Each structure stands twice: as C-alpha cells, then as structure tokens.
Amino acid sequence: MSDEDLKHLMNAREALVHKRLTWAQAIASSDAPDNAIRSIVEVQRAIEVVDFAIEELEQAELDEELAEDEEDNS
C-alpha cells in the first residue's frame, strides 16, 4: 500500500465529511429542499465508498505483511 494512496483517500474523506456537514447545516436551517436531502445522501454514499477503499488498502497491506512473514519463516 502506498502511503500516498492512503493520504489521498483520507483527504477525500475529510473533504466529503465537511461537505456532509455543510449539507446538514443547510437542511437544519430551512425546510430541507429535496435536492439538499438527496445531496447529503449522495455525499454519505461517497464517504462509504472511500471508507471501503481505505479498508481494502489496509487489508492489502496486512496480506502483504503476512506473505512476507511466511516467506521469512520458510
């Protein structure tokens, strides 16, 4: 896993969380127009996609470490 890949994903997640908060504030301060509600749902889905990608990278790193340990112990 590239530390830079993880950094990009974490930065993307941070930006999406900020966007989600912005939409939540808009919803809280008005009658919550449908487009605001749809937008916050879309942002939440994007956060979940990024979270999944982070988990995949972390799992790939663990798998690589295990494979290296097995090679070292052989």
Score class of each variant (00 low, 15 high):
2 S>K: 09
8 H>T: 08
32 A>D: 00
65 E>G: 02
71 E>V: 05
25 Q>P: 00
15 A>W: 05
44 Q>T: 12
72 D>G: 02
48 E>S: 04
26 A>Q: 03
61 E>Q: 10
56 E>D: 13
36 A>S: 02
7 K>M: 04
33 P>G: 01
36 A>V: 01
65 E>D: 10
25 Q>C: 00
11 N>S: 13
2 S>L: 09
39 S>W: 01
1 M>H: 11
48 E>W: 03
57 L>C: 11
52 F>V: 03
30 S>M: 02
17 V>T: 14
70 E>R: 15
2 S>R: 07
51 D>H: 04
27 I>A: 00
67 A>H: 06
47 I>N: 03
48 E>K: 07
21 L>A: 13
13 R>Q: 15
40 I>A: 00
5 D>F: 11
60 A>M: 12
21 L>F: 11
23 W>I: 02
67 A>L: 09
46 A>E: 14
23 W>F: 10
3 D>T: 10
47 I>R: 04
11 N>Y: 05
43 V>Y: 03
73 N>D: 13
66 L>Q: 09
55 E>K: 14
68 E>V: 13
44 Q>A: 09
69 D>H: 13
6 L>V: 15
22 T>K: 07
38 R>F: 03
65 E>R: 15
18 H>E: 14
40 I>N: 03
25 Q>H: 01
20 R>I: 06
66 L>I: 13
48 E>Q: 06
43 V>T: 12
51 D>I: 02
71 E>G: 02
15 A>N: 12
4 E>G: 04
50 V>P: 03
2 S>C: 08
1 M>S: 14
5 D>G: 06
5 D>I: 13
10 M>Y: 10
70 E>Q: 12
33 P>T: 05
6 L>W: 06
74 S>G: 05
57 L>H: 15
30 S>Y: 02
62 L>I: 11
23 W>N: 01
5 D>C: 10
17 V>Q: 15
4 E>C: 05
17 V>Y: 08
31 D>N: 15
68 E>H: 06
19 K>H: 08
42 E>V: 11
37 I>L: 02
22 T>I: 04
53 A>M: 09
29 S>P: 00
52 F>E: 14
4 E>D: 13
54 I>K: 07
42 E>A: 14
47 I>L: 09
74 S>K: 10
51 D>A: 07
8 H>A: 08
34 D>V: 02
65 E>P: 01
26 A>D: 01
